[in-house]
């Protein structure tokens, strides 16, 4: 039975990302983030805390880098183009922001290193984390070049939401206990809910029908969420996001983008590592 299974599907089992992968993808959820629009307000991060039951660890543990911010807004103060002027704390004078959430890589480096297969690639193109399966070897976080996986070093829930704050927990997903890894899921509970509604109404999922908490909250609409499937499989419906990617001449499955128009600002973080991330950033333009 098993042997037959192998022999019949051998070529399918031997298909890597370069040959299109094992899955017939239903969706490929992705993001585009315009850094020109980002004002570093951290509203996305707060929204993420609220939506995904992220533990608030407190000052001490935050100082020890044991926090759980699935979406962090990185701050950099050394804009090289500004030279001597780059001393100020102001965004226009050298500070720059980079909202970083899980890049949902197509060839995620965190996945193959998990000893118990707690993290894997879904037919939605997401990099899923199975909390129940995780034994906390933390190899995935070590092997994430973006360092976007967070570990429950304590049972944070015990004092993260003192009553009545526990009433604000999102019932659509779990509260994680100590010893498991967690990370941005692209609000998988929202994806699930939207898919269920669409199935109930016997229709396809519409572009823009729902969005992630961070994209919903961003006051400057710097974050765009959507389906990238048309970039991967020909003949699929275009979405706002895939149009944006095409417009920026950023393609999936590359370690280097070959742009006709060098003024296009789209790039993917550390794509040279062949992780094939699904988050595109639009470079910040600054008057010097």
């Amino acid at each position: 039975m098993s042997l037959q299974n192998i022999l019949q599907d051998w070529s399918k089992y031997r298909k890597g990302n370069e040959e299109g992968g094992f899955h017939d993808y239903e969706h490929l959820w992705g993001l585009a983030i315009d850094l020109n629009k980002c004002i570093g307000c951290n509203a996305c991060s707060v929204a993420c805390y609220a939506e995904n039951n992220l533990a608030v660890v407190g000052k001490d543990k935050f100082a020890k880098h044991q926090e759980m911010h699935w979406l962090r807004v990185e701050r950099y103060w050394d804009e090289p183009d500004l030279g001597e002027q780059a001393v100020s704390d102001y965004q226009s004078h050298g500070a720059s922001f980079l909202p970083m959430m899980c890049q949902q890589c197509m060839a995620a480096t965190c996945e193959p290193v998990c000893p118990v297969a707690a993290t894997y690639h879904t037919p939605d193109g997401l990099n899923a984390q199975v909390y129940n399966r995780c034994i906390g070897s933390r190899y995935c976080s070590n092997n994430c070049p973006y360092r976007l996986r967070y570990f429950n070093f304590y049972s944070y829930y015990e004092d993260s939401w003192p009553a009545p704050l526990n009433m604000q927990l999102n019932p659509d997903l779990t509260v994680r206990d100590k010893g498991v890894m967690e990370k941005c899921t692209f609000c998988v509970q929202r994806i699930r809910a939207a898919k269920d509604v669409a199935k109930h109404e016997h229709r396809e999922l519409q572009d823009g029908e729902f969005t992630t908490a961070c994209a919903q909250t961003c006051p400057t609409q710097a974050i765009v969420f959507g389906d990238l499937l048309s970039l991967h499989t020909a003949g699929k419906a275009e979405s706002t996001l895939s149009t944006l990617w095409r417009d920026q001449q950023v393609e999936l499955g590359r370690t280097e983008q070959h742009k006709q128009n060098p003024d296009k600002r789209g790039y993917r973080v550390l794509e040279g590592l062949n992780t094939d991330p699904k988050v595109m950033y639009l470079e910040r333009v600054r008057e010097v």
Partner: peptide, 20 residues
């Protein structure tokens, strides 16, 4: 190994084949 991997086919990872 190969049979275990083929029966656990929900597990493509890191852009690698199911049976690496």
């Amino acid at each position: 190994l190969a049979t275990a991997q083929a029966n656990f086919a929900v597990q493509p990872q890191g852009g690698k084949p199911v049976i690496p």
